[in-house]
Amino acid sequence: MPVPPDLTAAVSIRGLMKRFGDNIAVNGLSLDIPVGSFYGLVGPNGAGKTTTLNMVTGLLKPDGGMAVILGNDVWTDVNAAKRVIGVMPQPEQIFDRLTGLQLLIYCGMLRGMPRTQAMQRAGDLLRAFDLTAAENIMVADYSAGMTKKICLACAMIHSPRILVLDEPFESVDPVSSANLKDILIEYVATGGTVIISSHVMALVEKMCTHVAIINRGVVCAAGTVEQVAAGEDLEDRFLELVGGRHDAAHIGWLNGGAR
């Protein structure tokens, strides 16, 4: 008998399927993400991580299976699911001709907040992300790190119970990255759940409490970081599970200067 979803989990996925033409992107994937966890999804390019997150967050309808958010089926009531989730947009998905303050107020009001509440929360987030000096500058003129921070602030303004972040530290400088990590760790400490997709094993091993290794649309291993690593370095364990590592090919002309 199929295992029923865990209604106490932050996210419970059962048999999720998605096909694009002849390509099976997600192939019967099942996973439970506990409430209050900092959960890492790792896998090679094309493993199905982003497709899975898009189906879980109501952005992409699955071909089969189910995703349950805090006990409620996502696709039975997509709007209800979206109210408790904060999805960090990619820089190309935001209105970057707005100022940082305008963008946050817009995101808050889009979530149904009164303008005064959206303004108050926008100010709080700008201070928390050290963006107060840039609040009246167009987001198009932000640095990569500043843009990542304003994108995360957009996902947090409605105080979601679950944050879903796809490669949040990509192209971010070390100082901005450290600030983002501090805010996320504090959010988890208050009972929030963070789901992060990343290729950086060292970051996942350091920050996450749990991890799932995904390859070819299925879960290869899942559990606490210690359980999945099984006494090894997480990156070595990852390569062991997904394969693909090979001896460097000998290139005769690539000789480091020897003639």
Rank of each mutant, 00 (worst) to 15 (best):
L203T: 13
T209C: 07
R161P: 00
I251T: 10
D63V: 03
D22T: 11
C220I: 00
N72Y: 07
L165H: 11
Y187K: 06
L60C: 07
A133E: 13
A221D: 09
D173A: 10
F169G: 15
T190F: 02
Y39Q: 09
M109A: 09
A134F: 05
A67N: 00
V42C: 11
G28E: 00
L131S: 10
V219H: 04
F169P: 10
L53Q: 09
C107I: 02
L203G: 04
L29T: 03
G15R: 03
W253V: 13
R115V: 11
D22S: 10
R245N: 06
A10I: 01
V35K: 14
D236Q: 12
I85M: 14
L203H: 11
C208P: 07
G123Q: 01
T52F: 07
N23G: 02
F129N: 11
G145V: 07
K206T: 13
L126V: 05
L180M: 15
N79M: 13
E226I: 08
T132E: 12
S198Q: 03
R237M: 01
G217T: 06
V188M: 08
I150F: 08
G231E: 09
A202M: 05
G108R: 08
T8C: 04
M55A: 11
I195D: 01
E232T: 07
L70F: 08
L184P: 03
A80R: 13
G192M: 03
F169H: 14
F238K: 06
Q117V: 10
V3M: 13
V200T: 14
D73V: 01
L60E: 06
L239D: 14
V211R: 03
A80D: 05
S143D: 13
L165Q: 09
R19E: 12
E205R: 13
V200C: 12
I85R: 04
F38Q: 10
I195A: 03
L152Y: 06
D96M: 04
E186K: 15
D73P: 06
P168V: 08
V78Y: 04
N215D: 15
T52M: 09
A25P: 11
L184E: 09
N45P: 03
G257H: 07
M138E: 15
A222K: 00
G43I: 10
R237S: 06
T8S: 15
T132Q: 12
T147R: 11
N255F: 00
L110F: 14
H210L: 06
E186S: 15
G46E: 06
V11E: 05
P160W: 03
L203E: 15
D6P: 03
T193F: 07
G192V: 00
S198D: 15
I13H: 02
R97V: 02
I157P: 08
V56W: 00
S198A: 15
T51V: 11
A118Y: 05
G223S: 14
F129A: 10
V164D: 12
G256H: 05
A128Q: 15
V219N: 11
A47V: 02
R245L: 05
D233R: 13
Y106P: 05
M17P: 00
L59Y: 11
P160I: 01
D6Y: 04
V139C: 08
E226V: 10
Y142P: 06
D236G: 12
R111Q: 14
S159F: 01
P5S: 12
V211M: 00
K181R: 14
V175F: 05
D173R: 08
V56R: 02
R83C: 00
D182F: 00
F129D: 07
I185P: 03
M207W: 01
E240G: 14
L241A: 14
I24S: 07
